[in-house]
Simulated assay, not measured.
Amino acid sequence: MACSISQSILVVGGGLAGLAAAYRLHRAGLEFTMIEARERLGGRIFTAGPAGEVSNDGFDLGPSWLWPDMHPAVRRFADELGLAFFPQHADGAMLFQRSQEVEPERYRVLRQEPPSMRLVGGSGSIISALAARFPQGRIRLGARAISIVRTIKGVMVRFQVADGSFEDLETGHVIFAMPPRLLAETMEFDPAPDGSCQRLWRDTPTWMAPHAKFFALYDTPFWRPAGLSGAAQSMTGPLVEIHDTTTASGKAAIFGFVGVPAQYRRQGGGKAIINAAVAQLGQLFGPEALTPVTTLYKDWAADSSTATSLDQVGTGHPAGGKREWVDRNWRDWITLAGSETAAHDPGYLAGAIEAGERAAVRLIDRQIDKSVLPTAFGQ
């Protein structure tokens, strides 16, 4: 059924995809409102300081690496926002841990081409740069969308706020900038999407949702003078892949991906993982690694704004490619724009930018073609 959009656009989700969509809408002069369930923006992008607070010069508890030479949209976006890259540190030997009973083996690090890059200030710098470009009052934190109903004028979205109360917002179109699987589990639709659509949402893995990251912060990167890159691979764990994550400003740290499955992390608890991870770093990098200034630990499988019951076991990477994410009953009223819906690089930061911009362009083109979306403010 054809329709026209007569009201503002609601963006549900304040991660990179949602912010990229809102940025393009704003630049085109289209009115939008954004709601985000968390009390912070960024979604799976979370750059934290030593106390776990949001930081403009911290450590990436979520995605960190980018490849701007492979992803022109990432380069263009960073240049547009005035952001700078620096290379992932890789000078020195890599360690390989076969068991805890023998000394780790040393190997020369092969130069990666193109090199993995990081954003100065952390991945969160792209989030703060985008948020700073929006008018005040457009973004509402601590607002979790729970249902959407078709109305005569458009759609009505109900969301729950921090004090537990509910509010309704009528809008012309909704961009769901969130993982499809999370959308399927947390949102009630009236009418319900068809079965094939719901199966596609539930069958799409949420990138990073089953994983956990551990960080050990130090006064200095003591491993570098010892000829080590800070990189290591382990067959024993709990950390299976380890890297130097020292910031561009020189704050020293090592991080590792936790290889313990989510259900066992949940049973053992975060403290046990942290203690075992510090002990492992001592085995790899020597006694100095046993006394970090502090540690950070983020279990994404325990984050209800990221992971669902289906994300507790890793099921691979989102497939990518062009897909029909919305059935004909909802196609004119909602757009899916989570990173997993990107045709290229789904789940990654480049995919989030692609998906968010694609959603915005669809609505901008509709304004040009039909002149049905109002201009709320200028460039």
Rank of each mutant, 00 (worst) to 15 (best):
G15T: 08
L16S: 09
A17K: 02
Y23F: 14
H26A: 13
R27V: 09
G58D: 10
F59S: 03
M70F: 10
D79C: 02
E80Y: 05
E80R: 13
L81Y: 10
D91I: 10
S99G: 09
E103W: 02
E105A: 13
Y107N: 03
L110Q: 10
S116K: 08
S116Q: 09
V120Q: 05
G121M: 01
S123M: 03
S125N: 06
G142C: 08
I146N: 12
V149Y: 10
R150L: 14
K153F: 15
V161Q: 14
S165W: 00
E167P: 09
E167T: 14
D168P: 06
M178W: 00
E185T: 13
T186K: 08
D190V: 07
C197D: 01
R199E: 12
A209Y: 04
F214A: 03
A226L: 14
L228I: 04
S229P: 00
A232N: 08
Q233D: 02
F257V: 10
A262N: 09
R265A: 01
G270E: 15
Q280E: 15
L284Y: 06
T294E: 09
D299A: 06
A302M: 08
S339E: 04
S339W: 00
A342P: 06
H344T: 13
P346R: 10
G347I: 01
G351I: 04
A352Q: 05
A355P: 04
E357K: 06
A360Q: 07
R362K: 13
I368K: 12
F377S: 11
